[in-house]
Write a protein that binds this DNA or RNA. Sequence first.
DNA 1: TTTTTTCTGTAATAAAATGACATCTAATGG
DNA 2: CCATTAGATGTCATTTTATTACAGAAAAAA
Lengths: 280, 280
Amino acid sequence: MNTLELIQKNLDTFSKSERKVAEVIIASPQIAIHSSIATLAKMAEVSEPTVNRFCRRLETKGFPDFKLHLAQSLANGTPYVNRNVNEDDGPEAYTAKIFESTMACLDVAKNALDTSLINRAVDALTQANKISFFGLGASSSVAHDALNKFFRFNIPVACFDDVVMQKMSCINSTEGDVIVLISHTGRTKALVEVAQLARKSDAFVIALTAYNSPLALQSNLVLSMSVPEDTDIYMPMASRIAQLVLIDVLATGFTLRRGAKFRDNLKRVKDGIKDSRFDI
Amino acid sequence: MNTLELIQKNLDTFSKSERKVAEVIIASPQIAIHSSIATLAKMAEVSEPTVNRFCRRLETKGFPDFKLHLAQSLANGTPYVNRNVNEDDGPEAYTAKIFESTMACLDVAKNALDTSLINRAVDALTQANKISFFGLGASSSVAHDALNKFFRFNIPVACFDDVVMQKMSCINSTEGDVIVLISHTGRTKALVEVAQLARKSDAFVIALTAYNSPLALQSNLVLSMSVPEDTDIYMPMASRIAQLVLIDVLATGFTLRRGAKFRDNLKRVKDGIKDSRFDI
DNA sequence: TTTTTTCTGTAATAAAATGACATCTAATGG
DNA sequence: CCATTAGATGTCATTTTATTACAGAAAAAA
């Protein structure tokens, strides 16, 4: 496991002084691995043995061993941890934090995803007579984006961000239709009702939502991501990005399933809008 | 560059004793990084300073620094690189590839961004009488998303994905209005015309687009990301994600600039929709 | 062969990390 | 509210580790 993530996760198991050390390391891991125990101790304003004890707590042999582990995990994967934006952060700080925590969330989302479920979702989508994407609030732009993607595949596809339209559309659904419902929390009442209507009409309901949420329980297939929303200042940020990437994954799975001929078709669509663009 | 490869390549530039060290390290690098200079010297049957000199020859600060470099290059594989999806990739493969290359793109985007420009953009947005977000095609969902974010700030904000509406809106703009144009390529003729109209009406034009593109040249402020679109099967994927994260950054900058009182307001908006959700 | 340069090892020094112990802090029970 | 105790933290001593300076050996050049 990634050392940096490990530190982040165990942050509350550390003592006061050890947490100081953890924070200094998380803030600038690259500096940490190039420092001696003395300089790091000074940076964290603790004593040298405290740094050493901190290292041991992370199941390493000591400080030099810890540095090796940290160095490896910095090279290995995400040096990106979910850091919250502070009130006094400048543009550099909050830009970096948001990008990095988004990347960290994508990493978590990737690991939490069940690819066999993705495969089943792609199965359902490729066999669908019609695909509908529904979302409300912040999730409606995800639905729009999905529309934009699947629309190019030249199959019947719809997208509504209005509850009434969504319900009407569900009532008119039949077996063979796939309805994709998008909601971060999975607790929006209106969307749960939409799911119920869709099920009544024998449509296949795929939910991009939280595991075990009311919406998830009403769906045929759930793609859950369990992304923490720490960074957010009262609005969904990283979760929505993860959903979008998941849409990309589904769209890619779709095109791969359809084969090479189909992809040529996509290219023609793209070439078709050439005239509306400036040449280089 | 990979340290182990570097050693291999420079094998003939070393002296006799240094080569002994090199060979021991190449033979068992995992042991090497966990050994002290003394044990490694003994293994190579040379003196300790020889090992040290060997490390310096590889442009490291000394033995501990060398170990860090070696540890990093031993950390398996290049993690988040832009790997293209192949026709014969299974669900695990393409899911991982899409997530990872999205993360790689975000990393590139983050490094390419100019935070002073972000700061200026936040300046403009906070002082705006009215903010409009315009995008066409795939970028329209980014514009929608931006609307959803800035709408919560309780300021006049608009979003159109229709060229005619966009143009009309621009003609009605006045000084103090900010228009944010979103386009990956920056070559969509219609959107460039929109930019020109907006400038004529003395609106401040911010473009989220490619550097030096026709759209960029027509704008007051350009936030460019230069994200490669390798992974894409003829549709924007990662670039759009990067734009969305950039919107998050701008929205965060906005809330930070507005201060604590303003953030309490945001919380009230969120609490206000509580009734429409299921409790846990 | 002599001279010069380059390499390599020894020993001294400096730096770093760890261990032992004392002190402080905070929590628990009287 | 104080005494006791477990845990946390720092100081200092010790040990380990790395680096430097220098001298002798090997190789190359004259």
